[in-house]
Computed example of a mutant assay.
Amino acid sequence: MAGWTSIPAELLTEISGRLPGDADRIHIHQVCSHWRASTSRLAACRPWIVAGREPWNLVGPVGEHSFWLPLGGRRIYLGTPTPAGLPYCCGTPLDWLALMDNLQSPTRFVLRETLSEAEIFLPCLPAVVQVFLSGDPLTSPDWMAIASQKLYSTGTCMGQTLFFWRPEDAAWTMQLERPNGRIDSAAFHQGKFYFTDIGWTLHVYDLDRSPPKLVRSTYLYSALRERHGFRQFPGGGRPTWYVVAFNGELLLVVMYRAPNIKAVEVYRPDWEAERLELRDKVTDLGEYSLFLGRGDAFALCAKDFTMIRRNCVYFVEHDTVKHQDWAIVLDLGSNVFQQIPYPGEQMEGAGRSNHWTAYSWFCLRRPFLKAEAQ
């Protein structure tokens, strides 16, 4: 064994950097202290881009899914394969995967925690687009699952409606209000469920009521026009809104996208005010950065996840038909953006229908090993 422990640290670092999955890095960490010290921390390889093969112009879900490093386009294998017969993914809330055996006529609907492999069976619900969790089922005493379902009329999608479920419920509870547009982002804060839709509207549900009740709908474009007047928006792009839970508060992020220019603004609104105003602009997140995709958005600390840069907004280009940008990184202070190109030559399949399209972000925030506690 003495020969193995004397392997140069540089060589171990090179070897560990080429391993395809975190499970292999776990084995290296467990050999000895020298190997552990010479191997990059597992957190250095996160977060990952979630990619799917669902056509870009549909409202979801991810469907057949995979995980990729943002830079270099290398596919990541978690070491615990998806259970047989559950090939479709309807979201990646927190550290969980929402999996189905069939999207239109499901007989199995499962929440699966990727590290412990714990599974929670949900009542089956057809045409689910996304699943959101108010808390981690393994640690939260009172958590709720919220599913967004596509509604069809004569073969055309007419919007989405929400369904609510707690572990003691026998079935899902449908929202009482009219359907929503496609959900762009969602977050939980102080007992409420906030989400923005493609119609530029913010909706807020009070989850402490039974059934959950819609307590606010705000047209965000009006607040943005009041902020900027009738001047051209930053970058000249079309705005998209995201809500992100960050350090005990809730932020509103506006992403502007144009063909060659992208910009971002972050606000700290007074959510309890009768009229939503975009006055308190945030330009410094400290050591944190925000990650935006379709659905869940979250914040990570650059000190804990050394792969990322501080005070940036990471965004996956899930709404583009052109496979040019895999993701973009915007510096919140300077609004300078970096393009992460689509790694077409490394993706599976030659035709557009076989391409993996970046959809959202996924990050295991609980450590694999006790010694790796963040």
Rank of each mutant, 00 (worst) to 15 (best):
L300D: 07
G351R: 13
Y256H: 12
F163K: 07
F368P: 02
W241D: 07
K322T: 13
K150V: 10
P367I: 12
D142E: 10
L252Q: 04
G237L: 00
E265Y: 07
S210T: 12
F132V: 04
G72Q: 08
L162C: 08
E274T: 13
K192W: 01
H189L: 02
P141V: 11
F193P: 05
G21C: 13
A186S: 14
R225D: 10
E117A: 14
I328L: 03
T306C: 11
F337H: 10
D319V: 04
C312R: 03
L214S: 08
R74L: 12
H65Q: 03
Y152A: 06
H355N: 09
A84P: 00
P341V: 05
R216S: 14
L97F: 14
E119A: 05
A98C: 12
P87C: 04
C45A: 06
S33R: 15
T107K: 01
W361M: 03
R18C: 12
K322F: 14
N311S: 03
L125K: 02
N311F: 07
L58V: 11
N57H: 14
R365Y: 09
T357Y: 10
T5F: 09
F291N: 05
W35P: 03
D24I: 00
N354E: 15
I120T: 06
A145V: 08
V321Y: 08
I28F: 15
P47G: 12
A186K: 01
Y359G: 00
H27E: 11
W271H: 06
G286L: 00
Y267L: 06
G295W: 03
P93T: 10
G199T: 11
I76A: 15
L58S: 15
L69H: 14
N247I: 04
W143N: 03
P367N: 08
D280Y: 06
R231E: 14
L290E: 06
G79N: 11
P259D: 12
P70A: 04
Q30K: 12
L276D: 03
G21N: 06
H323P: 04
V131A: 01
V313H: 05
E168Y: 10
I183A: 05
V316L: 08
L290Y: 01
P8L: 13
F362T: 08
G235R: 01
F193G: 01
E372A: 12
E277R: 14
I183P: 13
K370P: 11
W68E: 04
E249C: 13
P8C: 13
C301A: 14
S148C: 05
E345C: 11
F193L: 15
F291S: 07
T92M: 08
Y152L: 07
I76F: 15
R25C: 10
V321M: 13
Y152D: 09
R225A: 09
G181S: 11
S38I: 01
M174N: 06
D95V: 04
D325F: 09
D206G: 09
S116C: 02
C32S: 15
D197F: 03
F298T: 05
M347S: 10
I26W: 02
A44N: 14
T320K: 14
A273K: 12
V266H: 07
